[in-house]
């Protein structure tokens, strides 16, 4: 595992990521984790904020929660996809609500708590997707 992670890190390092999560503590912990892998990690606090920041930047991957105030994850994903249909979406959510919809909208769907292996899988998927 050890060396694999290092290799993965190297591969995905250059991708640009935006992470959307309304819960502060959750956001903090996950942001730190993502920063270990990606060089650029933008954070947003809700769907509206996420959309704004997305428009103003140029991102490859979107990590997002679903249940958020002001604009929920699904809506935001739809709007982002309008802007960039190739964008890679990873959803991290606590509830099972609207599971099929989310799976349809996102590329990857994981339920919290996300385990270390889950993250490993996500990174691998990203590598595959971006052919790195």
């Amino acid at each position: 595992m050890n060396s694999e992670i290092k290799i993965l890190k190297e591969k995905v390092k250059s991708l640009k990521v935006i992470y959307v999560e309304d819960e502060d503590d959750m956001r903090m912990g996950t942001e730190i984790f993502l920063n270990k892998f990606f060089s650029k990690v933008e954070v947003a606090v809700d769907g509206k904020d996420g959309l704004e920041k997305f428009k103003n930047g140029d991102f490859d991957i979107v990590f997002t929660d679903i249940l958020m105030p002001k604009m929920n994850g699904l809506e935001m994903i739809a709007k982002i996809k309008e802007l960039n249909s190739e964008i890679f979406i990873v959803t991290l959510t606590a509830s099972e609500v609207k599971k099929e919809e989310i799976e349809a909208a996102a590329d990857l769907y994981f339920r919290k708590p996300i385990s270390y292996n889950n993250m490993f899988t996500i990174m691998n998927e990203i590598v595959n997707k971006f052919k790195l």
Binding site: M1, N2, I5, K6, E23, D25, M26, G29, T30, I32, F33, K36, F37, A94, K112, P113, I114, S115, Y116, M119
Partner: peptide, 18 residues
């Protein structure tokens, strides 16, 4: 939520180690 957060902090620990 707290469980997920604890999980993420644990992931951080493991990542650092790895």
């Amino acid at each position: 939520q707290p469980i997920a957060i604890i999980s993420m902090w644990a992931n951080n620990i493991i990542a650092d180690i790895d």
